[in-house]
Design a binder for these strands. Structure first.
Lengths: 154, 154
DNA sequence: GCACATTCAATTGCGAACAATTAAATGTGA
DNA sequence: TCACATTTAATTGTTCGCAATTGAATGTGC
């Protein structure tokens, strides 16, 4: 009985009961799936995320990319310098507001989008999941993320 | 029309359609929630995960912790050294197999478990979610993670 | 116009995360 | 037994991720 009481009290601390660990470990699992695919493009996963943002719209300041990806300049500045060294982007100070650095795609950076189109399909296969299932999970996770950010943000 | 065709072809590359980004950004959101709570315990989030494993069962080799958390020695060795420096654990070579380093909790490491009991409840509040909802999501995410790992592992 | 606060990116320092390699201990087959 | 493979941690080097600080540019209230 005492034994069982203890086990019950320990439930909230059990690793397998933690949704945060599920998400943490799933993020690593995705990273492992993406790695060989992105190696061919010459991108890391966070660099791929930045490129996704830029393929939607480039010529944007660092801050906008950071807000989109929930990353700050401490992460983005060196990452963007590596993307510039790889010739995928160009960083230029804004004329209108010299505090801002605008990020634009180079022709190779634009061209990389075509090579990247193969990636999502291969990840989909690895997930062994249907698009509607993934979409539903995605919406739940985004809603959870936004509530967590709201709880911290205020 | 041509405009719309392009937009359709771009859908798989849109950031907001990517479940991997949902998970990636949710992991960071969790980290932001945990940070102030774990600061009081003197732990980082990955260190907290290691302690969760050890609170369930200690005296285990590094490899076991790694398999549980999907981490390798390159990550764990320095992390465990920091936990040892903080007096929460003790690292000792196994007598039976000198390749193994066994990780045991110190009394302060054991005692920390009691302080940690407050953490899950506070994260639950921040999630603004019911336990059954979180549990259902957790199971879906774990299943997805395991399929991803299986796709890479083979 | 001028002190003051705010915004934006860069920098520094620390802690993961992982690939690749190394070294020591152990296991195995001939 | 002895060559060889395997297992286990540790190490090295690169890339995130973030807190805290800095410095320049811009906005503001008086």
């Amino acid at each position: 009985m005492a034994r069982k009481q203890l086990a019950v009290a320990d439930q909230p601390l059990r690793l397998d009961n933690q949704i945060c660990f599920a998400i943490y470990s799933a993020a690593h699992a995705f990273n492992r799936v993406y790695k060989p695919l992105l190696d061919r493009l010459g991108l890391t996963y966070p660099q791929y995320l930045v490129m996704l943002v830029l393929w939607e719209k480039d010529g944007v300041p660092v801050k906008d990319i950071g807000e989109r990806l929930f990353l700050d300049s401490g992460t983005l500045t060196p990452l963007l310098k590596r993307l510039e060294a790889a010739q995928f982007i160009k960083r230029t100070r804004s004329k209108e507001d010299e505090r801002q650095v605008l990020i634009a795609l180079t022709p190779p950076g634009q061209a990389l989008k075509e090579k990247a189109r193969a990636v999502p399909q291969q990840v989909l296969v690895a997930s062994a999941c249907s698009i509607p299932e993934l979409s539903a999970m995605k919406n739940e996770i985004v809603a959870l993320r936004d509530r967590l950010n709201a709880a911290v943000g205020e």
